[in-house]
Design a protein around this nucleic acid. Structure first.
Lengths: 175, 175
DNA sequence: CGTGGCTAGTCGATCAATCAACCGAGAAAT
DNA sequence: ATTTCTCGGTTGATTGATCGACTAGCCACG
């Protein structure tokens, strides 16, 4: 459901092939959503079936045909409608917390290792996000669209920072 | 997969029925994982099939029979093994970020409303976590198991706090 | 001359999650 | 007297996500 909306959102910016959508997911969307290739193509099929998008096949000389997907008026309406529906609380699932919750089955060193491994993984993610952030800055602040896109990245950054601080506190006070 | 592990973790603390497992999920686990009733029962069936748990039926006078599930030695081994496997980065999916990313399709007021609704939802969650936190405190810090369980709750609290701060920043700088 | 990467997509299988309905009994509340 | 709550569990259907394999031509590198 949400994948369909994200795809509609991207198509609202510009017509695209499934392949290009996948690239966007892997670059700009990756900090809050990821999508499987197969799932993108299947969702595109459904969007076309539902009249939210149309396909235009474009021949290319040196590359395979492009199945360019365009958002329709109906699709645009659905997109705006979704944006306006109620915000419902959503508890993300955190596999690491699942582990830590039961980590007392390990000895102290085991727990320390777990926390340290998480710290490294978190720092890597944060570094990645920070370098993405550098590529946008400044010119972004002006128009609302760019501001919001940057803001979602800032959200991920703040969460990773909070995670790091929490990890330090855990490492420090672990009995 | 992770659900199976969480269930094993709970069973390692004490034998339980599916019904009781569901209650634990709804109370202590709810801040980082939630589980559907049907899924819990199906996973229990699989745990028994795989030899990670056993069932004992206990007759009761005024209540239905209890299908008490006990963790086996193999189950305990699987649990510890899982705790020791590599920590892999995991990007949680955030439906709200999905919306905000494309919220420029709305007018400014629309975006402000969206952010405000999120703020209310976040504050509610935070209040819930904080009241859960009050019920544990103090005596917890001592042994490692209680410490870790409290720590996962602290993690959720820190993330909600970070979310609130970010929301304030967004509301303040939104062009 | 071969290998690997980029473009662009398709198909099948499997699993996990979610929703909704249904069963039945006792106990407490109105 | 009747509804609602708690206990305890089951089934079916559907959707979404995930993984892997397969097709196929072009380009650049060594």
């Amino acid at each position: 459901m949400i994948l369909a909306r994200l795809i509609l959102g991207l198509l609202s910016l510009s017509p695209m092939t499934g392949y290009e959508l996948k690239k966007h997911f892997d670059s700009s969307i990756n900090h809050f959503w990821n999508a499987d290739k197969a799932q993108i193509y299947r969702t595109l099929t459904k969007l076309v079936q539902d009249g939210h998008a149309t396909v235009t096949v474009i021949r290319q000389s040196n590359y395979p045909d492009r199945q360019e997907h365009h958002i329709t008026e109906l699709g645009r309406e659905m997109l705006v409608q979704w944006l306006q529906t109620d915000v419902t609380a959503h508890i993300p699932r955190e596999p690491f917390m699942a582990r830590l919750f039961f980590a007392a089955e390990l000895d102290r060193t085991g727990v320390v290792d777990l926390v340290e491994a998480r710290r490294v993984a978190t720092q890597d993610l944060l570094d990645d996000y920070l370098s993405q952030r550098e590529d946008i800055d400044m010119r972004a602040a002006a128009d609302r669209r760019s501001f919001l896109m940057a803001a979602t990245l800032d959200n991920s950054i703040r969460h990773q920072e909070a995670e790091l601080q929490w990890l330090e506190a855990v490492a420090e006070h672990l009995p």
